[in-house]
Design a protein around this nucleic acid. Structure first.
Lengths: 217, 217
DNA sequence: CTGCGCGCTATACTTTTCGTAGTGAACGCG
DNA sequence: CGCGTTCACTACGAAAAGTATAGCGCGCAG
């Protein structure tokens, strides 16, 4: 598993050597499976390297910014943790203008949702075109996949403009309708070639809950 | 701090001896402050008791069901954790009929929201009287406090009936109006003596997010 | 009162982990 | 070649967790 096909938001970190990459992957796998970080000694046995080697690799990973690894003195279990960016879903600021792959680099926070590591992201909604269903300020969880059936709520980009959240109705093979929930807004029709589905609606958080549940990366 | 004025959902657990209660309270405080569980030795020093005594108390707490505490063999840090019920906000099943203080005993899950330990609870909404703002199946976070101003969304109980979620308008000193968001339903007016505010709306979760973020106690 | 059990505490010892220091081999690069 | 980086190992000390055992206070049946 090379750096290229892991996660898109691990961009600014310095590159890893092969064994460091291996250690990092195993650590991610272990955290994904058990939820907790392993003992250093146990982890070293699992990786079939010596404790000190593992420790050096973890220190290298820490200085390169991939994990948090701080000793707490002799005898005490060290504090080892993956950044939220590696386990959670990024909350991007209000709908971004540029491509999403760039926006995820400076996510404002992360939602600790396991099981949709790479496919998920969240947007803070601006405007009331989907009111009262979705309101201004809501945090919407989206799944990065194409539409499966007509009528789904999707985050779509029209041409070079900003991403908007609308019902996406398939009119025929060539045209899509972007239908708001709020009747004050108008349904717009575009050729299939002009729009791009960035994500499909999977749920939302409203109110202080969103901030309370989010953790910063 | 006696058992009576701690948390209402710590009801089914067996009672604690004074020192066990003290250990439990200090543990909760430490987890609330630092987020992590302390070392046994450090914790023992903090409590000014011996390591073995602390360990026995923790074992007693574990067998009584107040905490999770399992040793992992000599030298290895033990696994120590408070149940979600002690740190999170309980999600009660669809709006309960009986008094809330009883319903919290069998919460279906907990939301890990720090900072509103005792004041918060969540309900899974049934019905569409607040649609489209709040939909059937949404999980609504509520704060256990009286209304502060007219027009807030509240979970109120009318007489002996189920709890319902409505806008609560103060008409005058004696009467309140329960106003739905959905125009298909009618606004009801009751004397102040007949209604009881169980909680004030603080936000909601919709879709699979709710289940993904919840942890069971 | 006496003896017994029980809860709490304390001491002593073993096992394991974690931290640090130091060594050395393999490799790439100017 | 010299130099830095990565990787792996040995050795030792410090701190923590587990275990066994014993002392102390208290309630209680006899």
């Amino acid at each position: 598993m090379s750096r290229a096909n892991t996660l898109p938001f691990e961009v600014m970190q310095r590159p890893l050597s092969p064994t460091q990459q291996k250690v990092y992957d195993r650590l991610r796998r272990h955290v994904a499976r058990t939820g907790a970080t392993p003992d250093l000694a146990e982890f070293a046995r699992d990786l079939d390297v010596h404790y000190v080697s593992l420790k050096q690799h973890l220190e290298a990973l820490a200085t390169k910014g991939w994990i948090v690894f701080e000793s707490r003195g002799r005898g005490r279990s060290p504090h080892l943790e993956l950044p939220a960016a590696a386990t959670g879903v990024p909350i991007l600021g209000s709908i971004p203008a540029g491509p999403l792959s760039e926006a995820v680099a400076d996510a404002e926070a992360y939602l600790p949702i396991p099981g949709m590591q790479d496919r998920g992201f969240a947007l803070r909604v601006r405007g009331d075109s989907m009111a009262d269903l979705i309101q201004d300020g809501d945090v919407v969880l989206l799944e990065k996949r194409p539409t499966e059936r007509s009528g789904e709520i999707c985050a779509v980009r029209v041409g070079e403009e900003d991403v908007t959240l609308k019902y996406l109705d398939r009119l025929d093979g060539h045209e899509w309708a972007l239908r708001p929930h709020n009747p004050d807004y108008e349904t717009m029709v575009y050729p299939a070639s002009a729009i791009e589905v960035e994500g499909v609606y999977r749920g939302l958080l409203r109110g202080p809950v969103a901030d309370a549940l989010a953790i910063d990366g």
